[in-house]
Amino acid sequence: MRRGTADPQGMRDAASLLPVAAAILLLPPFIVVFAAPVLIAGIPLIVVYVFGVWAAIVLCAWLLARNLATVEIDAGMEEKAEARSSPDRR
């Protein structure tokens, strides 16, 4: 199931950016913004925020892993195709 939208370089860049984004979101000073004494539906804001970001990271990582897999499978198939088109006949 090849996904036509998977741009290999874009995926790799995204994979490199994900940990940076995660670190910015989960470390001070940014996280302090959500450290206010506020409840959302009875749950402290910080709990909702941390677990929400965490779930988002897992989701992004899953999407990236899927796309990187197809990128690499495509690359592998291209290599095989190349190998087939130039068989080494002695």
Partner: peptide, 20 residues
């Protein structure tokens, strides 16, 4: 309080950033 999650957020960042 929330301090306990740091022990799991560090590895989460490292694994989500596995490509790096």
């Amino acid at each position: 309080g929330m301090e306990f999650v740091t022990i799991y957020l560090g590895p989460t960042i490292v694994f989500a950033g596995w490509w790096v």
